[in-house]
Design a binder for these strands. Structure first.
Lengths: 152, 152
DNA sequence: TAGATTAACTGAAAATTTTTCCAAAATGAA
DNA sequence: TTCATTTTGGAAAAATTTTCAGTTAATCTA
């Protein structure tokens, strides 16, 4: 689908706050409520807008500890890759898992309560997954920026 | 604030889909609409729910290229740190910037159109920021898992 | 360019949802 | 147990979403 400047502005607004009413959006975009409504529906139907979610403040639910974890597989066999990716996706502590270029095969973003919980996660969950060769963890000291808004 | 099992379930549901109506939620939670409404308001007022956003599919807006970028500062002077963090946060291509432990100082998540756009971003934007010592980039080959839902 | 076709827009009405209000039930502390 | 507080449920009110019909604007073709 093709976007005009209004669609882009609309996506920016919804990526920032999806709870705005169509009336509020219509003011910001100088459009009627119905026009806004139909543009949003088009963005949803075309799969541009994937979903709407509530973002939770991790500190409030005692998940303040974030780590990035590099993982190397023991061997790069197709079977191992498939199995690892299936298993790691099941771990709720793993918010992200990316297959990446470079020295390691994967980069994980892990969110838990504290260092002790992280140790437990590593020992009891992550390293229980088959075919892991080695790991290397980096701990987040402070979060400088963290947004879900993709520049459009 | 304290959570019971219903609050936790509610947070899970809203982290998955915030566009569900209170009636739908009330069915899943075996509660009245008003009870759901009050619980959500409490979670919002206590800052547990930070915001509501639309998640956009990056492929649909031509931002399919994701890279993680390690950065080391030239010197670890307070002034340099502050300046760097301020500057990097302004870059819309940088969705995340974490100050981390380990060999490098920062880990960035960068989202752009393609490798060419990434090169341009590095040359014209990132390395224009003062006090950067060295960088090391890793490219995402495939996204195994990517969620905003924190386990509660 | 003119005419036709399609897409996008507007305002009003209808449908649905959110929010308020009040009374009843549950919970907790003294 | 009793009093006070919180949570809940149902109904009414307020607000929002969604539909609808008619108009305007934009696009395309001949």
């Amino acid at each position: 689908m093709k976007f005009d400047a209004i669609d882009k502005k609309l996506l920016q607004l919804l990526q920032t706050d999806s709870k705005q009413t169509n009336k509020e959006l219509s003011n910001k975009l100088n459009l009627s409520v119905t026009a806004v409504f139909e543009r949003i529906k088009k963005l949803e139907n075309n799969g541009v807008i994937n979903k709407y979610v509530a973002l939770v403040k991790k500190e409030k639910i005692d998940k303040s500890f974030v780590a990035f974890c590099h993982i190397k597989l023991s061997q790069h066999i197709q079977e191992y890759v498939v199995q690892f990716e299936k298993d790691v996706a099941k771990l709720t502590e793993v918010l992200e898992c990316h297959h990446i270029s470079g020295d390691y095969d994967y980069l994980l973003k892990v969110m838990v309560k504290d260092m002790e919980a992280f140790r437990e996660f590593m020992v009891e969950k992550l390293t229980n997954i088959s075919h892991i060769g080695s790991t290397h963890s980096m701990f987040v000291i402070s979060e400088v920026k963290n947004t879900t808004a993709i520049p459009v």
